[in-house]
Simulated assay, not measured.
Amino acid sequence: MTARFAVAADGWVAGATRLPSPNFAARPDGSAPPTLIVVHNISLPPGEFGGSAIADLFLNRLDCDAHPYYDTHLRGVQVSAHFVIHRDGALEQYVSCDERAWHAGASNFFGRERCNDFSIGIELEGSDATAFEAAQYRTLAALVTALVAHYPIEALAGHADIAPDRKTDPGPHFEWARLQRDTSLAARYFPYLNLSAAS
């Protein structure tokens, strides 16, 4: 059975494990609601799944001496996303959707810059080289459905869509057409994808 989620008045989602990150800020327009969902992938160390490293990164407790990649790429970095969906479909939330998580960086959505200001970031545990799990798609579809019901979401995009010079995620294995089918959202929600050409 597909999970069902509900967004509370404070922007936290019932059914997600709540792990409040210190890496967030108020949205610049006060209480202006988010209108964009950005899908990412993440694995720490790169290409390895499981463990607590993602949570440790978002909670500023990652031991950067534990792996060479952490030392060269993540030391001193403060980042977060609103959500992480693990390989088994488990959902974690790090920042209220009413606040600005630090997930997109320098970015542009059809001429509108600073996507963190108006977006919700969802990280899928995975990589550009690996297919995602069915459980992840089920959780993602349920979460997106809840977010669209609660906020005036206008579009979904990948990190690569809004930062094409810097990012490639969620990568070639992410099935956008599957997400569209699972959520029954109209094609207009997927402005970067030609759904009619998708298999």
Rank of each mutant, 00 (worst) to 15 (best):
D98V: 03
D165E: 05
E125S: 13
A131V: 10
H86A: 13
F83E: 09
I153K: 13
Y69C: 01
E133Y: 11
A141Y: 05
E92K: 01
V79R: 11
G51L: 12
H40D: 14
Q136V: 06
F58K: 00
G47M: 13
P164W: 00
V84A: 05
T168P: 00
F83G: 09
A90K: 02
A53N: 12
A81R: 10
G111D: 08
H86K: 14
T130D: 13
A106W: 01
F118Y: 04
S80C: 08
L59Y: 12
H40E: 06
L147T: 05
I85P: 04
Q180W: 04
L179R: 02
R178Q: 13
G121N: 03
L140V: 01
S43Y: 06
Y70G: 00
D165N: 04
E125Q: 14
T168K: 09
H40Y: 14
S43A: 12
D98I: 02
A163P: 02
I120H: 02
S80D: 04
A90Q: 10
D65N: 13
A141K: 03
P152L: 13
L156R: 09
A135S: 15
D161Y: 04
P46L: 07
L185R: 08
T168I: 02
F174L: 14
L124V: 08
R61V: 09
L156P: 15
A146W: 04
A131Q: 09
A129I: 10
A90M: 10
G50V: 08
F83T: 12
K167A: 10
A81G: 15
Y70N: 01
